[in-house]
Amino acid sequence: MISAANEGDEAAWGAIVDRFAGLVWATARAHRLAPAEAADVAQTTWLRLVENLDRINDPERLGAWLATTARRECLRLIRLHSREAPTGDDSLFEAPLDDRAEQRVIASERNAAVRRAFARINERCQALLRLLAAPESFSYDEIASATGMAIGAIGPTRARCLDQLRRTPELAAFGIG
């Protein structure tokens, strides 16, 4: 697929984008970038892949390569903005919701509680859970690349983060989960 894309095959390229767009996006959002900045990171990441198509030696690690590239671009942006006001705690949810999505979200109190609870846990946990809970099920290799965490730390950190989430007042009130 990679070599076909390198020959200019748009269908092969489209398949790569469809498969990994969620990973690149989640990596940027896990770094708490606002949607417009996350879009810039995604764009730069995909352009980098285009210029490196002839150098990807291990297709199995394409996801990890993309996640690493996106993470580096995120760190650059974060450093650039370090002297500006920090983003709000809720920044992972800055994306405008369309009415239907909003209604689905507030339809369930429990859902709203999870959302508020998530905004309360620490940034590292938010980043890790954002990636682990992405609909596409990324590999630990990809998640390690996206977060800069060691692969071996992901499992234990996940357990601690879920614990932290469960103990927030928002979720403790439900007594479950």
């Binding site: 959002r29 994306a95 979200v105 859902n111 682990l132 809970a133 992405a134």
Partner: peptide
């Protein structure tokens, strides 16, 4: 809890 989070991100992000 992971299933709930997954639902959340699929909806809002």
């Amino acid at each position: 809890l992971m299933v709930e989070l997954r639902g959340l991100f699929t909806d809002v992000d």
